[in-house]
Computed example of a mutant assay.
Amino acid sequence: MVDITITAANVLPGAGAVTEQGTAGETITAGQALYKDSTGNWMKADADSAVAAARDAKAIALCGASANQPITVQRSGEITLGGMTAGVTYYLSGATAGGIAPIADVGTGEYFDVIGIAKSTTVMKLLFGYSGVSA
C-alpha cells in the first residue's frame, strides 16, 4: 500500500474547517488520520487494526504532539495536505497507522474508511465514512 506523502509543516485547515482541541494518546504527526479511544485521547487510526474503533477515523491532526500533550484536530471541511490527485477518493491506510491512501492501495483484510476527496493536488474535502466492510 502506498500512502500519500504529507509534509507536516504544510498541513493547514481550509474553508469550512471544524477543529477540536484534545489530548494525544501517543506520538502523532500533523496530517495523520485519528480516532478517539475509550479514554477520550486521540490515537492514530489504522484500517487493519484488531480494534474496531481504530478502523473508524474521525479527524486529521493539524499539529504534532507526544502522548498526553494537547493536540488540535480537524473533523470536517477542507484541509491542505498535499501529495494527492484531484478527484480521487482517499481512504484510511492499513500499511501505516494514521496514513491515507487511494482506494487502489486498500489491501486484503483492511477496512474501507473514506477520509475524503481531493479537490486539487493539495486540498482535500474531508468526508469521514467508515463502511465496516473489509477488502
Rank of each mutant, 00 (worst) to 15 (best):
M43W: 05
A17K: 09
A53K: 06
N41L: 07
L12K: 15
A17E: 13
M43K: 13
Y35S: 09
A33F: 11
D105A: 15
G22W: 10
G83Q: 05
E110S: 12
G87Q: 04
T29Q: 15
L62D: 04
G94P: 03
G14T: 11
T85H: 05
A67H: 00
T39Q: 11
L126S: 04
T121C: 00
N41E: 08
G16L: 08
G87S: 07
A50T: 07
A65H: 03
T29P: 05
T72R: 11
T89N: 14
K58V: 14
I115D: 12
I6M: 03
V106F: 04
I117S: 08
T27F: 07
T5M: 02
D46H: 15
R55H: 01
G31F: 13
T85Y: 01
A54I: 00
A50G: 09
A53P: 00
L126D: 01
R55W: 03
A17W: 14
K119G: 01
T39V: 12
Y91H: 14
T7L: 14
D48E: 15
T39L: 11
T29R: 14
T29C: 13
N68S: 12
K119I: 00
A33Q: 14
P102A: 06
V18F: 08
N10K: 15
S93F: 07
T122W: 00
P13K: 12
T96H: 03
T29G: 08
P13M: 14
A86C: 02
A50Y: 03
V114D: 09
T89Q: 12
G14Y: 14
A104E: 04
V106Y: 01
E20R: 12
G99N: 12
A45I: 01
V51T: 13
G107W: 05
